[in-house]
Design a protein around this nucleic acid. Structure first.
Length: 890
DNA sequence: CTAGGGTTAG
């Protein structure tokens, strides 16, 4: 009886230990407890129970110790038990060891252990994570073989897998054949669609789900939010937000994060902020979304501040750090950048490739190339982004050779991508290296064929290195073009001053029905400014209204410039007045406009107005105001502006400001003072400064100073042929033909060509262009005859040709012919012949108007009684009844 | 078995 009692007690206590230990094991919350329980199980010999081995495996996996799980499984004697296999496979997938999971599954099949419906979901999940389509199909066959083709869990896993693999045909096939579906089934399909960018489809499934009478949960809402954000469907988004409130999933932090991120995607900064402030639960992702969202709004300091707040509550992960490091780079906050770098190293992100890439980028942006390189060199493995980042770092910091060398090294390790080539193409622009650009072009064709982005970059590069023909060829050869292609070619036309081609491009765009973007207009408007094409200008202005861009500040600024350069100062002023927001550039545009028309007083008054509204001038603004003063002979006022710039705005004068001052003094005939000013400058005077003085000397006829200044100018040996021509002209005026010949020879040997002069005018929507000395145009004979008649009439009025403006050493009467061949005269004569008597004429010239032509035009305006508006490279001259608006201070 | 946040160029 005693024995029986005892053994009954024994059994009971055994039973008790078994159950309580099993419970303790399940509820263990830390690895230390787990170890203790594990030892106890070994001591008590409970290993022989399948239950304990299995629970230990999953518990270790829960604490991220898959190696312990594997070791227990290896030592286990229950290899014929499917529960053990299921457990170890799940342990592996739980720890992200998907190929190990598949290995074990293969072993299991080899041992002919029959899987059950708990086996497959984890196996299928592994295939999905590995994007292993082939194994996936084999597993599905296996599923059908062993008869789990209709199992809810297995089918859900299959749908998830196929939709993640972007094979919605198979996913839908499984979905359609299921005898019974649950919410997870629908959710899997929705998130599959939305994470692959099939947003409409995701919403469609969502509506079907609702029609089927199911109540959405957090998973559903997350997927739908992602789709709404992608579609930028504000209305849908609102509906979902309402739904979130209604079904009460708002306390789910993932759903809230989804909403937060949606508001950012809709550019609703304040809504995002309010939502964030009212969130009950926040996690690291919440903070990341905020930091990243603020970054995308350009609120860099704010996003760094958010980061500093976040670290009080959460340990930032590599994703957080990636966002905030970008912000540091943007504002060149090296101090924060460095400390975050240290944080990453200390917290075990040393080998996170993305984190390192972002650090490299941050250092590059802060100009710390050596620090960037040190990180790059210390990386265990590098990806494309790492290489591209460091190469672009070298290019950005102007170490071009090192950039190319790194590119060579890169090619040994991996295949460069299109971004690598974009970086190298930008290098070509900086170095003006046509040969290397062509070499890259060949490589690009070999490795990528033709892609739009690279094609666009090539159009851009060829134009910027001055190969406009190659740029056009590249543009024409492109099979497909996007709006950027068009914007780029127009910008290219601008850069190379190939305006007529630019206008043709614009009409091609119209014919092809391509909608203009702000960027398109920002390249097109300067094209019209350059051409001074009135009709095109008005048409474009209309187009701006139709597209609703009239309140865009940059557009407004460009329109002011366009009208002023097209001879329509009134329109320019009106546009300025109507602009709701004006920045310093708008004011600069207005003041330059006044300056070009010699309205210096009005320019100064506008400056007063600008000061009153509190807009702060910058250094470019001062160029404009000094220009305006100098073109109106306002010496005292100009000097005052120059002094103010330094005193009131602490802007250190640059070369261009000194050049304006020299221009101001010398234009008003104060040549000696101008020379003195140059010699007392704190900067070394360059060609533009001496050039300003020299061109005034010539107009003022001071030969002595002209000769001295010419010597200075030639010493500097500028790359701009204009200054050599200027000096050569000065010597020609002095009759020093030997010097002239020498300059011409040196220009020839250096390959510098004088920019050919041409003039153009618009008559009835057509632009007519005339080159100097050109004889092949419509009505050449008539034009020539008219010029002959005009010169007779001019002579009677007292005109004497100023032969100093002829550069060639030829006979006097031939010189006279050469003057008459100047492009502006041809254009004026052509204009007189083809427009109504008494109507005003408007002529554009690419260079500065010649002094003799200036005089001649004054006479012509009186003889024919016409207003002649001439825009040269600098400004407008309005000729009227024998005088010019520039007051001869051209 | 199902959900959210990150890197290079333009």
């Amino acid at each position: 009886m005693n024995t029986r009692k005892l053994s009954s007690f024994d059994l009971k206590s055994r039973d008790f230990i078994y159950t309580s230990l099993s419970n303790t094991l399940s509820s263990a919350t830390n690895p230390r407890d787990l170890h203790k329980i594990h030892s106890l199980i070994i001591t008590l010999g409970l290993y022989k129970y399948v239950l304990f081995s299995g629970k230990l495996i999953s518990k270790y996996s829960q604490f991220k110790n898959p190696l312990a799980s594997l070791s227990i499984f290896g030592q286990s004697s229950h290899k014929n038990n499917v529960y053990m296999w299921n457990t170890i496979i799940r342990a592996m997938t739980h720890n992200g060891l998907f190929s190990k999971a598949l290995d074990i599954y293969t072993q299991m099949r080899g041992l002919k252990i029959k899987p059950d419906n708990y086996t497959f979901p984890a196996v299928i999940n592994s295939c999905a994570n590995l994007l292993d389509f082939e194994t996936a199909k084999l597993v599905q066959e296996h599923v059908l073989d062993v008869g789990f083709g209709s199992d809810l869990y297995v089918c859900n896993a299959l749908i998830d897998m196929y939709s993640r693999l972007n094979d919605f045909g198979r996913a839908r096939n499984v979905f359609d054949k299921m005898p019974k579906r649950d919410l997870v089934t629908w959710n899997s399909l929705i998130s599959g669609y939305s994470s692959n960018g099939y947003w409409e489809e995701a919403l469609e499934i969502f509506f079907k789900l609702r029609m089927a009478g199911l109540i959405p949960d957090c998973f559903t809402v997350s997927g739908v939010l992602c789709a709404c954000s992608g579609l930028m469907e504000v209305d849908e988004g609102r509906v979902v937000h309402g739904l979130v409130e209604k079904i009460g999933v708002k306390k789910d932090v993932t759903v809230s994060n989804g909403l937060l991120s949606m508001y950012f995607k809709f550019d609703r900064l304040m809504d995002s902020r309010n939502f964030f402030d009212n969130m009950d639960v926040r996690d690291a992702v919440t903070w990341n979304t905020m930091i990243c969202g603020y970054f995308q709004f350009g609120l860099y300091e704010e996003s760094i501040k958010l980061f500093l707040q976040m670290v009080q509550y959460f340990k930032p992960d590599s994703l957080t750090v990636a966002s905030v490091l970008q912000a540091c780079g943007h504002v060149r906050d090296l101090k924060s950048g460095r400390s975050i770098h240290e944080y990453l190293v200390k917290n075990g992100y040393k080998d996170d490739i993305t984190a390192n890439n972002v650090i490299i980028n941050m250092y590059v942006k802060c100009g710390e190339l050596l620090a960037a390189r040190k990180v790059f060199d210390s990386m265990k493995s590098r990806d494309l982004v790492s290489w591209n980042s460091i190469i672009s770092g070298y290019v950005e910091n102007k170490f071009y050779e090192e950039g190319i060398n790194l590119f060579k090294l890169m090619k040994i390790e991996l295949e460069p991508d299109s971004i690598t080539y974009l970086i190298l193409l930008s290098l070509c622009i900086h170095c003006v290296d046509t040969y290397y650009a062509m070499q890259l072009h060949c490589n690009i064709i070999k490795s990528f064929g033709s892609t739009i982005t690279l094609g666009n970059a090539l159009v851009d590069v060829y134009a910027k290195i001055g190969k406009m023909e190659d740029s056009k060829k590249q543009f024409e050869n492109m099979e497909t073009r996007d709006i950027v292609t068009w914007n780029t070619i127009i910008a290219a036309c601008n850069h190379c001053e190939d305006c007529s081609f630019g206008l043709r491009i614009i009409s091609r765009m119209r014919n092809e029905g391509i909608t203009f973007e702000v960027a398109t207009l920002l390249s097109t408007l300067p094209l019209c400014s350059f051409l001074g094409a009135k009709r095109q200008a008005k048409e474009l202005h209309g187009c701006i209204f139709r597209l609703g861009f009239e309140s865009n500040v940059s557009i407004g600024n460009a329109v002011i410039e366009m009208y002023s350069k097209s001879g329509m100062l009134g329109y320019s002023i009106r546009v300025f007045k109507l602009m709701k927001t004006k920045d310093v550039i708008s004011w600069t545009a207005l003041i330059s406009a006044y300056g070009m028309y010699g309205e210096g007083k009005k320019a100064l008054r506008a400056f007063e107005g600008m000061r009153k509204v509190g807009v702060v001038p910058d250094h470019i603004f001062f160029v404009a105001i000094l220009f305006a003063c100098s073109h109106s002979g306002l010496v005292r006022e100009g000097r005052a502006c120059f002094d103010q710039m330094k005193k009131d705005y602490s802007i250190e004068p640059r070369k261009e400001h000194y050049a304006c001052m020299v221009d101001l003094l010398s234009r008003s005939g104060m040549l000696a003072e101008a020379e003195e000013f140059i010699l007392s400058m704190p900067l070394k005077p360059d060609a533009s400064i001496w050039g300003a003085l020299l061109s005034a000397c010539r107009a003022g006829g001071d030969i002595k100073i002209a000769e001295r200044v010419s010597e200075h100018l030639l010493e500097l040996n500028s790359d701009d042929p204009g200054y050599h021509i200027l000096a050569s002209n000065a010597f020609a005026a002095l009759g020093k033909w030997d010097q002239v010949k020498m300059i011409r020879k040196s220009l020839r040997t250096r390959g510098l060509k004088k920019q050919p002069g041409f003039s153009w005018l618009e008559i009835q929507n057509r632009v007519y262009i005339f080159g100097t000395g050109e004889r092949f145009f419509e009505q050449h004979q008539e034009v020539s005859d008219l010029l002959d008649i005009l010169s007779d009439l001019m002579a009677k009025e007292g005109y004497v040709a100023d032969l100093r403006y002829v550069l060639h050493d030829v006979e006097e009467d031939e010189k006279f012919d050469l003057l008459c061949g100047h492009s502006e005269r041809l254009a004026i004569a052509f204009g007189l012949l083809n427009t109504e008597p008494g109507s005003p004429l408007q002529i554009m010239k690419n260079l500065r108007v010649c002094g003799d032509c200036h005089t001649a035009t004054k006479y012509i305006s009186k003889i024919v009684q016409r207003e002649i508006l001439v825009r040269d490279a600098n400004r407008f001259h309005l000729f009227k009844d024998g005088t010019c608006s520039c007051g001869d201070k051209w």
